[in-house]
Design a binder for these strands. Sequence first.
DNA 1: CACCTGACATAAT
DNA 2: AATTATGCCAGGT
Length: 111
Amino acid sequence: MEVHRPPTEFERKVFDALHLIPRGKVTTYGLLGQYIGCRSPRAIGQALRRNPFAPDTPCHRVVSSDLAIGGFAGTKAGEPIERKRRLLEAEGVTFSPEGKIPTECCYRFDE
DNA sequence: CACCTGACATAAT
DNA sequence: AATTATGCCAGGT
């Protein structure tokens, strides 16, 4: 069990980036990482996993580089993933029968 | 399709 | 303080 601890700068960057994602869109670990200057999508995932502000912080808007739904709450599949998918659909994100998200719904931090 | 490697932060020892 | 292990990956072999 992890103890509660104040968010680090790295986590702050990640959370802040999440807030930039428009509603109804998603981003990938890689894009988010590049935006905050981190080339390690794994580190991003860890920060999201420890998201202390969930679901105020839209961590569910981050998917894998393949535009697959990716993981959620430390799991790759299961109930949490179902919730994530539902959250995205509720925001207007569409899913292919394979569970993939169309590129149009992918936010690439284009200003 | 199954590995292996790369890059990075945090927790635990 | 340093090392080890691991983690909502990505990409290459």
